[in-house]
């Protein structure tokens, strides 16, 4: 269960040097750690607990409270599909269904080829372009099921090239 000893913990040193002694920085540290490792491996959480003087229970509690944090690795591309009110009204459910069928995954899962992870989010704040999704840093608006699938296929094609 514990994957201790697998991660290169020296990568954390800079972040810990900057924030470990600053009160209330646990969330910031975990955010930076996730940027480094792509997710929050258990040994990293232990290291953070040790360096910040928190109990592992507290670190785990925080890491599992916020939806931004992931305890398992994600695919190469993270699809964040907005399920906000405007997106709901404008057909986000159908878009989600199309994406799930295309990638053969459910919300929170990663495709078999490791390329895409799907995560539905509460609201991306781009309501006027609804339905919306974000893939990595890019936002795609006014989606239809077909358009969403096309975007995914294009990214996949780009990776293959």
């Amino acid at each position: 269960m514990c994957d201790c000893g697998k991660s290169d913990l020296t990568l954390l040193d800079g972040v810990l040097a900057e924030y470990a002694s600053v009160r209330g920085s646990l969330i910031t540290i975990l955010q930076k750690a996730q940027e480094i490792y792509g997710y929050l491996p258990t040994d990293v959480l232990y290291r953070v607990a040790e360096a910040t003087g928190s109990t592992p229970a507290k670190v785990m509690g925080v890491a599992t409270f916020y939806t931004q944090f992931r305890l398992t690795p994600v695919g190469k591309h993270l699809i964040m599909l907005c399920k906000g009110t405007a997106c709901h009204v404008n057909g986000a459910d159908a878009v989600e269904k199309a994406i799930c069928e295309e990638l053969k995954i459910k919300d929170g899962e990663t495709s078999d080829d490791g390329l895409f992870s799907l995560k539905t989010v509460a609201c991306l704040g781009c309501c006027s372009l609804s339905p919306v999704m974000m893939i990595d840093e890019d936002t795609y608006g006014s989606l239809t099921p077909a358009k969403a699938v096309e975007i995914i296929r294009t990214i996949k094609g780009g990776d293959a090239a």
């Binding site: 269960m1 514990c2 258990t42 959480l45 232990y46 109990t55 592992p56 785990m60 509690g61 599992t64």
Partner: peptide, 26 residues
Amino acid sequence: EDQAKKGILGLVGRGFNTVVKPEFND
């Protein structure tokens, strides 16, 4: 946390899925 001063037990997860756990079951 407050009386035993150990902080071994913690809340994990959020909302309906919250559980009480000793961290990492380790």
